[in-house]
Amino acid sequence: MTRYLEDVRVGEEIPALVRRPSRLQLFRFSAVTWNAHRIHYDRDYAAEEGYADVLVQSHLHGCYLMDTLLAWAGAGAHVVAFGWRNAAVAVPGDTLTCTGRVVDVSSEGEVSCELEERNQRGELCAPATATVRLERRARGGGADG
């Protein structure tokens, strides 16, 4: 799927991506990022730190939001800038819903978006911003999705 610049409008909603992190996912994400912090896989340690369960990694929140952006923009879209902030913790079993909207479209072909991730209680876990460069539709060409 490729999203073309001409098809994007300010205010357009970015479809939701829902993620339900599991302890298995947190273990695999820690392994692949070489993150040995116990807070992500040791429930006893997490309890000592005052948490109900192990915590979803900061970077995994970012990845959920990046995937939300690319699921809308297309895997080949060139992300120019991206940022997120961890506002609340999440634990395995939470339902994290990532949404977004287009806030600006520049004449140079850059699309600015705001995104956010909320849990099942509606609490904001991670706000994000992104700028993505989209291709223009080839003259005489058609969309493919």
Binding site: M1, L17, R19, Q25, R28, F29, A31, V32, T33, L60, C63, Y64, M66, D67, L70, A71, G74, A75, G76, A77, V79, F82
Partner: peptide, 21 residues
Amino acid sequence: ACDTPPTLLDEDGLPGGRVPN
């Protein structure tokens, strides 16, 4: 590990043939 949607991944398991951002 990120659970990136399979529809975003190519035959090598990468989004658009690139290293994930």
